[in-house]
Design a protein around this nucleic acid. Sequence first.
DNA 1: ATTAGCACTCAGTAGAATTGAGTGCTAACA
DNA 2: TGTTAGCACTCAATTCTACTGAGTGCTAAT
Lengths: 350, 350
Amino acid sequence: MARRVVRKPTKIVVDLDDRKATILKAVVVEHIDTAQPVGSSAVAASADLDVSSATVRSEMVALEREGFLAQPHTSAGRIPTDKGYRYFVDHLQSGVLGSVQQKQVKDFFASVRGEVEEVLEQTSTLLSQMTSYTSVVVGAGHAHATILSVQLVSLDARHHLLVTVFSDGSVIKHSLTPNFEATPKEVMEASRQLNALLISTSLESRVQVPSRHDNEAALVREAVSILHAQQPVMEGEQVFIGGSSKVAEVFDGVETVRQVLAILEQELLVVSLVQDILDQGLSVAIGSEHGFAPLSTCALIVAPVTIDGAPAGAVGLLGPTRMKYREAMAAAEVVSAHLSRHFAGVDDRG
Amino acid sequence: MARRVVRKPTKIVVDLDDRKATILKAVVVEHIDTAQPVGSSAVAASADLDVSSATVRSEMVALEREGFLAQPHTSAGRIPTDKGYRYFVDHLQSGVLGSVQQKQVKDFFASVRGEVEEVLEQTSTLLSQMTSYTSVVVGAGHAHATILSVQLVSLDARHHLLVTVFSDGSVIKHSLTPNFEATPKEVMEASRQLNALLISTSLESRVQVPSRHDNEAALVREAVSILHAQQPVMEGEQVFIGGSSKVAEVFDGVETVRQVLAILEQELLVVSLVQDILDQGLSVAIGSEHGFAPLSTCALIVAPVTIDGAPAGAVGLLGPTRMKYREAMAAAEVVSAHLSRHFAGVDDRG
DNA sequence: ATTAGCACTCAGTAGAATTGAGTGCTAACA
DNA sequence: TGTTAGCACTCAATTCTACTGAGTGCTAAT
């Protein structure tokens, strides 16, 4: 899966006068809450606006003309368009998590233990439970990590395992099945040579492989080529998706649910989507903004995870365009911050 | 997650006279096909039965009294009960896969490469695509496998990785974060001792740990305890679920979809469910047969995977009780057989 | 510029009537 | 005795109609 084209952020500076903005926000808030079209009188009733519904109506006509609102049919209220949501999100004062959730996150990170993968997986479950949306946690690949150790272990004369340990704490294995039989001694020797050759290199750097014709050299060559072969696939990017059942909760229409689930199944696609949004410098992609048609009824919130300033992955939340942006964004940010700190903390704890 | 209680197979020998059996089967087949209640005249029209609809009706009354059929309401046709499906499945002559699918499986296993995990994952996708049902592939844990190699790798003075290679080709890692600083030399020495201590043992066997008070001994003790600690969690059982989006295709009602998805999220639950069914010696659990209420509208087909006769996991298919049993069972069996052969083949290929 | 007032639109709802697939029962029949 | 044609009955689903009411757009008055 190739990384998708990076589009420049198409930040259109929109500005609405105060009253229009208030009305738009009221419509968005109400519609997020009720999932129904919002009428002018409901907006007029919205306290901080001292005008009649008629005035609201004429403003709404303008907002519709400008593309912020839409009408499902003539005699219905208005619903926000993607552009409407965008305005809303851009003008959202960043929310604060409820104290219960604050505590939930705190407790989680105070007690979570285990390998990185487990932490990420559980984080994904946490995020999903906190928000009632489907969560995505992406762990960065280890292309840049250096190799700490390479070991060749024999299963039998023709089947060996290449176990590589990286400086970021990840371990990957590869099967090595040469078309000749190797003695334990040859395997050990190859293992030794691989260590000498690869330690402190990264998967990106090329190394000089021995050109001799003996078995050790053959093993070494095969091992090195396997290791280097995996890079372009951006292997090692780990994805953890939590709460896919939430999809059935927050989207309506079985067909929509099916489509979204089908996309979540293609994990590489999800990763590139998240990356794409991050690359654009956005924290939310609404509706068609990510240019991916099947998800045009979705919004995707992302927050980067960094370790000591370096990008190390991301957390995301997937919901309908009428999702609770403030709460969800706050949750994503808090969790990604905790996650960043957690991993930084692992390295200099004690 | 504790393994669930093993219930004895409650095989009730049911026998129906020929005509009742034919009628029952006709109802099942038709209902699986149409998802609608089946009426007496539809059954009567079913070629291999030369009776009028009135006769069919009176037989249906009997079948309903005996619990094989049910009526959604007075003036509707009949639908099969779980018991009805059970009879149908028990009297199903084992189906053969269509030649297209035959080829699909063959091609897949001829070309599939890579690590066990990848093969299992892809198999799960294959099964799901072949059948349009959600698939479950369970890889057995490595509690019984013996240790081929143990290696302790330092990230820094206080953070080490314990990398263990098992005879079944699996590799697991554990973080080791002792509360003292260890020199590279001590780590290497501990690694050496661990090897001497653990090679050829399994996770089940206890070993004598050194009781000295130096750093190596402490590292060794911690490593051994971590390794042995993981067993009761039946860690290492891998689950791969493929085609969860199919849930939204084959079940009707968003709520049902949500429930099923929520269950699929709890992978350990799924594993124990599959194991439970296998332990009962069944190949299909229909409706409430598995005793798990939230899945009472589902049927779960399972087929064991064995390597050289020893159980090594299972494949499963989850669908509604009105699923296409013959095709799905055939697919599960063929795939599990291929999978068994594939892994056996890996060990003595060439 | 704002708003009260009003005619108009149209999805949604409720009720009534109708349809029709399907049943159970019974009486006649082989 | 088992089978079947016939018939009255049931009831979900469909169709139709009328109505409701939330909401709009427009206009004339403030």
